[in-house]
């Protein structure tokens, strides 16, 4: 147990240290922007670690929850007069409620029903966002109000540029999200999730309510995705239905699987790689998709647990 706790602390320490130290090497504020995108994606992917890595369930519609979180920040301040921060919380609650309602019937079924149903759910959300043009502005998107926290910080003497602020804020959110996910891993719920990942039959035999725990994982990961969508919307101050698009869902799962769905740090690494790759590959933009596919295939063939866990295993193996 002591070993485990220290591994949790190590993960958090590495994460926090990288986030804090990296800015010293940034040549321009563009890198803060890329950094904050990594953290926003990393947060959504951390949620997927709970669903895919802990509970062994696949969702292909989590961008739908990101869309709900994002549009909550755009719509609630206009129509309900809520502060954007409260709107983000409302979005998270709404996502949780919808995940509960959608997940409850589906998760009683075995096999790939969740993947297929979540796929449909994600597409549904993105269609509603595109088609309800009078409310959401349709495919052209809509503006999102300013969070206002930067002005508050400025008043107390911390003057950050927009990109710096969002780097710090989303970095903080990611560390918090990772901390919660790691705590969950070692909780009774986490053990139940891992049990049903290993074998649903075995888990049921020892008294784990399989459907209940799957639902718990689904709802928690939906909240992560929703908060990530809210952060993206507030950061960009503009949002389009692409955030809820099918490709975004696939991207999230790919990030988790690439880095290692079973490990929070690995998944965040996956998010970092897939977020920076298009930026790095602008020179070879025509080959971007090709290289992405190649990287993915190589990881699936040679590192089936994902990048980070496989590398860690190999290093540990050599040490013994």
């Amino acid at each position: 147990m002591i070993m485990r706790l220290s591994s949790k602390a190590t993960t958090l320490l590495i994460l926090a240290a990288v986030i804090a130290i990296a800015p010293f090497f940034f040549p321009s504020s563009y890198y803060f922007r890329v950094g904050s995108l990594i953290f926003v994606n990393g947060l959504a992917v951390t949620g997927l670690v709970i669903l895919i890595g802990y509970a062994g369930q696949i969702s292909l519609g989590h961008a739908g929850f990101a869309g709900i979180g994002a549009y909550a920040c755009a719509l609630a301040p206009i129509h309900l007069g809520l502060h954007p921060a409260l709107a983000a919380i409302l979005g998270a609650l709404l996502s949780a409620a919808i995940a509960f309602l959608v997940g409850r019937p589906i998760l009683r079924l075995k096999g790939y029903y969740l993947a297929v149903a979540s796929l449909g759910f994600g597409i549904l959300v993105s269609m509603v966002l595109s088609n309800e043009a009078q409310l959401t502005g349709g495919p052209d998107g809509m503006a999102v109000p300013e969070l206002g926290l930067r002005a508050v910080l400025k008043a107390v003497g911390i003057d950050l540029s927009n990109t710096e602020f969002w780097y710090a804020f989303s970095g903080l959110a990611l560390v918090l999200g990772a901390w919660l996910a790691l705590n969950l891993y070692h909780s009774p719920t986490g053990r139940a999730l891992r049990a049903l990942h290993g074998s649903e039959v075995a888990a049921r035999t020892v008294g784990v309510d399989v459907a209940h725990y799957k639902l718990v994982a689904f709802v928690i990961s939906a909240i992560y995705a929703s908060v990530s969508g809210s952060l993206l919307a507030l950061q960009n101050k503009f949002i389009t239905p692409d955030v809820a698009g099918f490709m975004h869902s696939i991207e999230m799962v790919t990030m988790a699987v690439l880095g290692g769905a079973g490990s929070v740090l690995g998944a965040i690494l996956g998010a970092a790689i897939l977020t920076t790759l298009p930026q790095v590959l602008t020179v070879f933009q025509e080959y971007e998709q090709l290289m992405l596919g190649l990287v993915m295939m190589l990881v699936m063939i040679f590192m089936r647990e994902g990048l980070l866990p496989s590398v860690a295993h190999r290093i540990r193996g050599r040490g013994e």
């Binding site: 563009y30 998107g141 960009n236 503009f238 692409d242 955030v243 298009p278 930026q279």
Partner: peptide, 28 residues
């Protein structure tokens, strides 16, 4: 993708230090 467009716009002004930007193919 509007999100990518925003990142590239940031890159153009912050990193490449261009004097003007053309683009935004779509309204989004």
């Amino acid at each position: 993708d509007p999100n990518k467009a925003r990142t590239f716009a940031t890159r153009l002004v912050e990193d490449d230090e261009v004097v003007a930007v053309i683009g935004g193919t779509t309204t989004g």
